[in-house]
Nucleic acid binder design. Structure first.
Lengths: 103, 103
DNA sequence: ATTATATATGAGTATACACACATATGAGCA
DNA sequence: TGCTCATATGTGTGTATACTCATATATAAT
């Protein structure tokens, strides 16, 4: 873990650190969905979804694709979901261990 | 990836999204180090290091351990570093692919 | 061309957050 | 006890950021 990695990773983590953005990613899963679907799925305002989609897009975490009047968004590949899942498992495991020890 | 995971993951990502915090974690690596070492290694002010250490501590990403006048900080285990490394590799791979395609 | 629908963008605002400065706590030693 | 060193905490401040409202753009249909 060098400085290069820090500069590479921290902007991505900053993006993922916003709950609504993470929810958007989760609502996509492996499918491509139009913005209106995301709005419905998350209950966020259309404006706010668009706002966060832009950041996700600029970070390369999501890819837009025009289909007629709709713009479908998708994850570039399934790897991110796998990594998130692994992270989540690590957290479960960690908190389990933390209960046993102290802090 | 459910809502539970989002609520669990996003605070952690928020913590990791701050470059200085990530640098602190990297400067620790697998070793335990006193705060003064971290200050030297990162070039940050003592106050600022303490500020970020508190957040890392409260998030369970770092564990304090008093040794005489010093307080040593360590990662709870090596897993986090592995995951960060994997994340970093994924990013390298992704940006490589993105150059080949478009966006 | 006009209208409707889908999405994006700009401006304004309130809140969160990183940081610095000053000071407090707590351990070890004279 | 008093002093020094290591670390933590409280307060203030500037800046970033999430959100809303109003409006712009782009596509499709009549």
């Amino acid at each position: 873990m060098s400085l290069k990695n820090v500069n590479q990773l921290s902007p991505i983590f900053k993006i993922l650190g916003e709950p609504n953005r993470l929810r958007i990613l989760c609502s996509l899963g492996l499918e491509c969905r139009p913005v209106s679907d995301i709005v419905k799925a998350t209950g966020m305002s259309q404006t706010n979804v668009s706002f966060h989609l832009r950041l996700l897009r600029e970070a390369g975490l999501v890819r837009p694709e025009r289909r007629g009047p709709y713009i479908y968004y998708c994850l570039p590949n399934g790897e991110l979901l796998k990594i998130l899942d692994q992270f989540s498992k690590w957290l479960d495991d960690k908190s389990y261990k933390m209960d046993v020890t102290e802090n």
